[in-house]
Design a protein around this nucleic acid. Structure first.
Length: 505
RNA sequence: CGGGGAGUGGCGCAGCUUGGCUAGCGCGGCUGCUUUGGGAGCAGCAGGUCGCAGGUUCAAAUCCUGUCUCCCCGACCA
């Protein structure tokens, strides 16, 4: 029996995908569970990813005319009650503040005191509190549009949590806009979804499908929910971002009214859209391998780590000087309009261990520099997307670093696109559907399924039949009618085009 | 919230069924020496109120009750 090569992460993706995911998060030092139920501590290496996600998206939001603002963490209970579907959707997962003080219980403990007149809800999302604020800001059509984004944390008391993918508290951005016309609001909804798609593909190297959610999967209170959906390496879908057209539902609930050009009092049209720290989970499950994290260069806070190899004490000074010089040279180079981020790892630990720690963290380039390289004026470079390391002249490496990073970024997207293509099928019969989404090994299910483009009549009953195999409709692609008419896989009734079915997170 | 699994030095685990000496092992940490180009070796040292709270008992990591947290599968959701 051939001995399998040692991997930095155990178990491997194939052996136990959920466990592998957790190990990658831990080994890459991205985050850890906290002492608070369901909440995570995002560690510097993970938070750096979030900061870069924020920076890139923030620029895209501003370039599309949006501004940032900040609204309260607390929402009066009565605000949340205003939109019926919205309350129903979120009521079960809210953290509720009922007291505003703690008192000594006489035994060294504390008991809540000072009961609030009206409970406050820790925001699960801010439509209602922002809507109430907008109602004050909007009088006339001249006050519109309002194009505001907020970077914030929200709390949803989820029953089952997983680092980055679903935590009780998470970081996100939520855009909330108000418009004069339905058409304008619809355009906004679509525009922001495009921003998300562009970001996912160009920065995260994570290909996404776009489309509209079915009624069953829609945001509570929305008229329509648009989404980006990505395929993870276990072939399950991850909803990576949503953009909601709220119609006049929230405007009516919050009394956002304006006097129109004709002097008539009208309800405004609103949208909301968001992405969260879940994107980091998506990045991990799209790119990480059995040796740990693989960070897309465009989102890496550091692109290169320099590892000095010092054999003899007397070499140390010279090798470090050579490394520092390399660091300075690289830092003057630009990748993606920013200076290349370089770490010189001087930690006094074994070289192998040091190298592997960076492999697991997913830094794009590792450069090892020892006396031999120094003498020949070269460096030894390892790319995170390849196994082999190669020697290269120092100047040549410095000059080509940016283009190597670009090549890596492009390669990651291509690989992810290829993976998705390999696991995307068209299915026309229920038996095929059942076969595609049923693992061979029921005890310990292997990666199976993928994206299945199938005909669907549009009724909730047939959608429910897919649920029996834990499969949901991820989205109805915008151009779904282009795939041609057919018959619903479940009931045989007419369908205008194929929609995307998959198992999901 | 339903089902299953688990909490024992920093990490991973054994011990628990059938209570009993100072609670073990591996990895890691520290110190010293030797090493160093893909996860080092030897020696010495440090480190644990066994998740928490009650209870049973002469005696509890072990038995009982409660509770908290984590992981997996479901339902729910970004």
């Amino acid at each position: 029996m051939a001995k399998k090569p040692r991997t930095a992460i155990t178990p491997t993706r194939e052996e136990d995908y959920p466990q592998w995911y957790q190990e990658v998060v831990k080994a890459a030092e991205l985050a850890e569970t906290s002492q608070v139920r369901g909440c995570m501590v995002i560690k510097p290496w993970g938070y750096g990813l979030w900061e870069n996600i924020q920076a890139a998206l923030d620029k895209m939001f501003k370039d599309t005319g949006h501004e940032n603002a900040y609204f309260p963490l607390f929402i009066p209970k009565s605000f949340l009650e205003k939109e019926a579907a919205h309350v129903e959707g979120f009521a079960k997962e809210c953290a509720v503040v009922t007291h505003h003080r703690l008192e000594d219980d006489g035994n060294g403990g504390l008991v809540p005191a000072g009961k609030l007149e009206e409970p406050l809800i820790v925001r699960p999302t801010s439509e209602t509190i922002i809507g109430a604020t907008y109602a004050k800001w909007v009088q006339s059509y001249r006050d519109l549009p309002i194009l505001i984004n907020q970077w914030a944390n929200v709390v949803r008391w989820e029953m089952r949590t997983r680092l980055f993918l679903r935590t009780a508290e998470f970081l996100w951005q939520e855009g909330h806009t108000v418009h004069e016309t339905e058409e304008e609001a619809l355009d906004e909804t679509r525009k922001m979804l495009e921003v998300y798609k562009t970001f996912a593909e160009e920065y995260m190297a994570m290909p996404v499908l776009t489309g509209e959610k079915t009624a069953a999967e829609r945001f509570p209170g929305a008229v329509s929910t648009l989404c980006i959906e990505a395929m993870m390496q276990d072939r399950k879908a991850l909803q990576a971002g949503t953009s909601h057209f709220l119609g006049q539902n929230f405007a009516k609930a919050s009394e956002i009214q304006y006097q129109s050009r004709e002097g008539v009092l009208e309800y405004a049209w609103t949208t909301s859209w968001g992405v969260s720290t879940r994107l980091i989970g998506g990045m991990i499950m799209t790119h990480a391998d059995d040796n740990g994290m693989v960070i897309p260069p465009r989102l890496a806070q550091k692109h290169v780590v320099i590892i000095p190899i010092v054999k003899k004490q007397e070499d140390e000074e010279a090798v470090l000087a050579y490394c520092t010089e390399l660091q300075e040279m690289l830092s003057k180079e630009f990748y993606d309009s920013k200076p290349i981020g370089v770490i010189l790892d001087k930690r006094d630990i074994n070289t192998g261990e040091k190298g592997w720690s960076w492999v697991k963290k997913g830094i794009p380039l590792r450069v090892e520099v020892g006396p031999r390289d120094m003498e020949s004026g070269s460096v030894f470079v390892g790319r995170r997307d390849r196994d082999k390391k190669e020697g290269i002249k120092r100047e040549e490496f410095v000059a080509s670093a940016a283009s190597i990073l670009k090549e890596m970024q492009d390669g990651m997207l291509e690989r992810a696109l290829a993976y998705r293509a390999e696991n995307t099928v068209e299915i026309d019969s229920y038996s095929e559907f059942e076969k595609f989404f049923t693992p061979k090994n029921a005890e310990n299910p292997e990666a199976h399924g993928g994206f299945a483009f199938m005909h669907w009549c549009g009724c909730a009953e047939c959608e429910g039949k897919a649920n029996e195999l834990k499969v949901t409709i991820r989205c109805v692609p915008f151009d779904y009618e282009k795939s041609g008419a057919g018959e619903c896989v479940f009931c045989g009734k007419a369908s205008k085009g194929r929609v995307v079915f998959a198992k999901s997170y």
